[in-house]
């Protein structure tokens, strides 16, 4: 285990930001801290980096007790949501900063910085100031700067949070590929479940200062530990007293089975290739999503009476088992 967090608690005044948190973060993996706003993700990350002190509990990094170490002695790379670029230094000097502090020979610094700028595709911007870069470029510079010191762990606090949706998506795919090349133990904070599911090897769900669940994207998606995790990781709907994913429901127009619930389609929304049908049963409104082709073959429209049931194979997990693998390959 690369990062070991044991019984960490943190208060701000009377407010409990972290309440007895224990997490083990595996070496060489990409781990996401996922949770709603204000849940304590940044606080935990900053405690790992030493930018914040825990009130109690311990932090170990690669077997070394780091609890009482100041940030500069922990050898962690930290990437901030708003880049924290050194505004008065060129891109080259920004990336070189940690190496200059470590008093490495000039020639070594130069070659290492050039190598890193190539890695983040910023070779031609070496002499610019951060203010002359786009947000995405600044964030890549910040990443190169953090990687320059060959950190034991790389910590990223909502690294793509300030970027627009398209750049965000590009950068997270790029981060995944980068990690596959560099293999440094990486922890990144996000409140975007899609980002976590797509990029991470391991996800830690944090809510109200507590760890709700730790597991692989598949574990979390298919076997959520509780309703909170289930709701947070993806869309949910209620059928009878069961909480299910809308795409794990099936509808048919045949004769009702004892397990089926009868209802009437009250609304049909099309989102790209996906059809979302709202079905009003005797006592609730159920949302079902299906592909366009599935929907067309049903031959139903708003007002039709249909039978709803939970797809039988979902407990085996085969319906969604390869989901994140497929996403990751793209």
């Amino acid at each position: 285990m690369s990062i070991e967090i044991k019984n960490v608690a943190k208060r701000f005044g009377g407010f409990v930001a972290l309440d007895d948190v224990s997490v083990s973060i595996p070496s060489g993996q990409l781990t996401a801290l996922l949770g709603p706003s204000g849940g304590g993700k940044s606080t935990l990350l900053r405690i790992i980096a030493g930018l914040e002190r825990a009130d109690s509990g311990r932090v170990e990094i690669e077997g070394l007790d780091a609890t009482d170490l100041p940030p500069q002695k922990r050898n962690v790379g930290f990437v901030f949501q708003h880049y924290a670029a050194f505004k008065h230094l060129s891109v080259h000097r920004n990336v070189a900063f940690g190496l200059e502090i470590r008093k490495r020979p000039k020639a070594e610094i130069r070659s290492r910085v050039e190598e890193l700028l190539a890695l983040v595709h910023l070779e031609q911007f070496a002499d610019r100031l951060p203010s002359q870069l786009s947000g995405g470029q600044r964030q890549r510079m910040a990443l190169a700067r953090a990687l320059a010191v060959q950190p034991t762990v790389l910590l990223l606090d909502e690294p793509f949070g300030a970027l627009d949706a398209k750049v965000r998506k590009e950068l997270r795919e790029w981060l995944r590929r980068l990690h596959d090349e560099v293999h440094v133990t990486t922890v990144f904070v996000t409140h975007d479940q899609e980002e976590a599911l797509e990029v991470a090897d391991e996800i830690v769900v944090i809510n109200e200062g507590r760890v709700e669940q730790i597991g692989s994207p598949d574990d979390l998606y298919d076997q959520p530990a509780n309703d909170f995790v289930m709701r947070f990781l993806g869309p949910v709907t209620q059928l009878g007293d069961r909480l299910v994913r809308p795409h794990d429901l099936q509808i048919h127009t045949g004769a009702p089975d004892p397990a089926d619930v009868t209802g009437r389609i009250t609304r049909i929304t099309r989102i790209g290739f996906e059809i979302r049908a709202e079905i009003t049963t005797s006592d609730q409104i159920v949302t079902v999503t299906l592909t366009r082709n599935e929907f067309l073959s049903l031959n139903v429209e708003a007002g039709s009476t249909v039978q709803v049931r939970v797809a039988p194979q979902i407990h085996a997990g085969s319906a969604t088992g390869n989901r994140s693998e497929i996403l990751r390959a793209t």
């Binding site: 980096a49 030493g50 930018l51 100041p70 940030p71 500069q72 922990r74 050898n75 962690v76 790379g77 930290f78 901030f80 924290a84 050194f86 900063f97 940690g98 502090i101 470590r102 910040a142 700067r145 953090a146 320059a148 010191v149």
Partner: peptide, 8 residues
């Protein structure tokens, strides 16, 4: 903070 985490 960034400078501190980079070892300064």
């Amino acid at each position: 903070q960034a400078a501190r985490s980079l070892g300064a």
